[in-house]
């Protein structure tokens, strides 16, 4: 089932090392913006535009920032960072399938939630939707998430990684202590 922490931690560390050895540090949350941009640009083709010199820009200030690098990735989804995240989904699916899946109950909601808040799907979905919103808003405000800031950042001894981890655990631990008093 779940790997023991020594094997799992070593494997995870090797993947983070492999990424920085071969390409660049791992990061995920930017790709939520890129997917938003792709969807938005599909509906309204004027969101991302290419200038005569080949550079990209956007009517959205965030997509246009840093010389339009997000706008460029929106226009060309077949880039390293976006394909990386798509590959994560494929890797996760294959891994879960090979270990026999997670079972019908877990598909609906995790055991720890059920133990503390009952099995209302509505309640779980409402909480998780709000959480998703807050997490991605926070990750974009911070400029990275658990992967980019906490793991890749602290691995590189970057100051911002430590600041982020401090903030994340300062909020996460009290929240979990209050919410999850019963163990699954």
């Amino acid at each position: 089932m779940t790997l023991n922490w020594k094997t799992g931690g070593l494997a995870l560390g090797l993947v983070f090392f492999l990424a920085v050895l071969l390409v660049k540090p791992i990061g995920v949350s930017t790709q939520f913006v890129i997917l938003d941009g792709i969807l938005w640009n599909a509906v309204d083709g004027s969101v991302v535009t290419q200038a005569d010199d080949g550079s990209y820009t956007s009517t959205n200030a965030y997509l246009a920032k840093s010389g339009g690098k997000y706008a460029k990735n929106v226009a060309n989804p077949l880039n390293y960072s976006f394909v990386f995240v798509v590959a994560m989904v494929v890797g996760g699916a294959i891994s879960a399938f090979m270990r026999g899946g997670i079972g019908a109950q877990e598909r609906q909601m995790p055991a720890i939630w059920r133990a503390n808040f009952g099995d209302s799907q509505m309640k779980r979905n409402a909480a998780v939707f709000v959480a998703g919103f807050v997490v991605l808003y926070g990750a974009r405000l911070a400029g990275g998430c658990t992967s980019g800031h906490m793991m890749s950042g602290m691995m590189q001894t970057s100051l911002s990684g430590y600041i982020f981890a401090l903030g994340a655990f300062a909020a996460a631990v009290p929240t979990a202590l209050i919410l999850f008093r019963k163990e699954a």
């Binding site: 600041i163 903030g167 300062a170 929240t175």
Partner: peptide
């Protein structure tokens, strides 16, 4: 970075 970390931490726990 710190403020965003707080937000992410809350949602991560929830």
């Amino acid at each position: 970075v710190f403020a965003g970390g707080l937000l992410l931490g809350f949602g991560w726990a929830l």
